Amino acid sequence: MAIWQSIPSTPFYIVIVIALIVCFYPEKKISLIQNFWMQLRVIVFILALIVLMPMFGGQSAVGLKPTEPIFIIVLIVSVFQLRMQYKRAKQQVAREKEIEEQLKKTKK
């Protein structure tokens, strides 16, 4: 598309980085489950950009394409990392519920 050639690249990258920070920066300390969902949003956003930008006529300056083996490896590692994070978050939620139930029993 001709619009991408007319936009200066450095300010465009700066705006994208600022937008990512504003969209995904936590305002306070967050729990593991909230951290998991935030990481999932960021990863899905980045992967969607990598997949969708070539469909709209964009080309990677570093040669990163969804068909490259390194992309698939990064995708697999990301899935495993998110899976482990989700399990830890679920364990934290279960521990918090258990502590809450114990506190209720001791108050009675």
Rank of each mutant, 00 (worst) to 15 (best):
Y25T: 14
Q81W: 14
E27P: 06
V44D: 03
W37K: 15
A89I: 06
K29G: 13
I3T: 00
K87H: 12
I76T: 12
V17T: 12
P66H: 03
K90P: 01
A61R: 14
I70P: 02
R41S: 12
V62P: 00
R83F: 08
Q91V: 02
M53G: 00
A61Y: 09
L64R: 06
Q5P: 01
A94H: 05
L64T: 06
M1P: 12
P8F: 00
K97F: 04
I21N: 01
P11S: 06
L49Y: 10
P26R: 01
P54G: 02
I7E: 02
S60E: 05
R83W: 04
F80H: 00
F80G: 08
L47I: 08
V74Q: 08
G63P: 08
L40D: 03
I7L: 13
L47T: 05
A19D: 13
P66T: 03
I7M: 06
K28S: 13
A19L: 14
P69I: 08
P69K: 06
Q81K: 08
K108Y: 07
E100W: 08
W37R: 10
G63W: 01
Y13N: 09
E101D: 11
G57W: 00
C23N: 14
I3M: 01
L52K: 03
G63T: 05
E101R: 15
I73G: 02
E98N: 03
T10A: 09
P66W: 04
L82F: 07
K65H: 13
V15H: 03
V42K: 04
K87V: 12
V74C: 12
I3V: 10
V77A: 11
F36M: 01
W4T: 11
C23W: 14
I76K: 05
P26G: 02
R41F: 11
V93F: 03
V77Y: 02
M84W: 15
I14Y: 04
V15D: 06
